[in-house]
Nucleic acid binder design. Sequence first.
DNA 1: TAGAATCATGCAAATATAGGCAAGGATTGG
DNA 2: CCAATCCTTGCCTATATTTGCATGATTCTA
Lengths: 260, 260
Amino acid sequence: MLPDIYELVDTMLKEERQQTILSEVELHNRILLTDIAETLDVSIDTIRRDVKELDAENKLRKVHGGAVSLGFTMNSTRNQNIYKLEEKNKIAEKALTLLKPGSVIFIDGGTTCSELARLIPQNLDITCFTHSLPVASELLTKPNVNVIIVGGQVSSESQTTIGANAIHNLSEIKVDYSFIGTGYVDSFYGLTEFDWDIVQVKKAVIKCSKKTVLLSISEKLNSQHRYKTCDINAINTMITELDPENELLNSFRNHDIRIL
Amino acid sequence: MLPDIYELVDTMLKEERQQTILSEVELHNRILLTDIAETLDVSIDTIRRDVKELDAENKLRKVHGGAVSLGFTMNSTRNQNIYKLEEKNKIAEKALTLLKPGSVIFIDGGTTCSELARLIPQNLDITCFTHSLPVASELLTKPNVNVIIVGGQVSSESQTTIGANAIHNLSEIKVDYSFIGTGYVDSFYGLTEFDWDIVQVKKAVIKCSKKTVLLSISEKLNSQHRYKTCDINAINTMITELDPENELLNSFRNHDIRIL
DNA sequence: TAGAATCATGCAAATATAGGCAAGGATTGG
DNA sequence: CCAATCCTTGCCTATATTTGCATGATTCTA
């Protein structure tokens, strides 16, 4: 707890008290309102009001029963210029309609999936696995989302975990929906990638999902590459920014895919 | 007219009075209007008006019931940076000397550890485990660092993975050095934390390390909290921003700890 | 799901503030 | 020297802020 030095002061200005609170939060990352109240010898209400003010001033973050330092949660790097952001936004919006309270989902890496993570409503109560650092960071801003990161070696390129460990960890979970992106998609060749490691992880993701949802901008339709993730049938729902009736999607209709 | 001798003695010029107020504020960082009024034997209104003027001249800051020095409130703008960044930087620099090419290490969460991650040289070839998202992000900028993130549920407060899964994952690795922070440290009570979950993870980290290095700013010395991570003996090396010979570290010398 | 802890809200007492006012003293111009 | 004026100061009153307590609502936890 706090050193007893502070107790010597019997009349404290509000300003001083708030500075003390700030220092304690910065120092220990987190404090209890009750601790501070006891140490500074004021009522819990006063501390609560102080912390509320400091929170409003963005000096710290108030949490139930205490306060945490901002330095911790300072999570800035939001990339402003994502390629085709508008389209990806549209896709993410459609994907959101699939989410129900209590769902357990997996979200893949990539900008489209990050966009989905960003748009998840604050009050939606879900459990979300991911192997993407940016997605995890984004989800951490949602108080009602339970975030679980799939451990493993981190690929600096994709900012996602890959490799045997990640795949093994995925083998031990089962999610309702997985939302995945892909490098290339074609109605005949299925989902393909440039990178072999990424393919292995995506295979594991699909295997651990009851339903797999593909998020892809229409620009990727009818393209292919070296390594295959899965047949197109492995996808249960496919979301593009296009209207579901758009003729560009025709070649995907014969398969058992729901198109949104 | 009567001689004004007496009045001259206890009549203070406005200028003089304001100077006194200023010195008092500088000396004590804060003053109460009532205190000053009593000391200088003028009405509270006069002092209030003085302080108001001084505030307008930016000589101090007036607050409800008193005034605080400008330097005192300067702290409020520090939120841009990390609290005590300079000290943490110094600590990180010292920690760096322990790293050798080929090392396998673990880096904990927290701002001090993030600072260490930031300062790892580009060309240093190491394998680094972490359960902290910010640390992982930082390390990803180093091409020669192999980053492995310990999977598990992510705590939004600390931006680290916690819980049974993270602990289990830690149980399956062994690292040469772990660099850990702590909320509170005391030579008698050892390392303690506010948060029970964090303690469990730190215990697991210590268990999977051949050597454990504690990074802590001196401000945390001789503080304690509710949950215990480990005895002070569990620490092999302790790094603060202080000179190793500093007397503040005396109480840690009887233990088998290397102090840097 | 129940009990405990924490929270938001309203209230009242104590204290602090702002602004008006008047009594000096100081200053200035004749 | 006098008088008009300004500045400073203390006092007063209406208003605002701060704080602790009581209350019921909400959230957390086991």
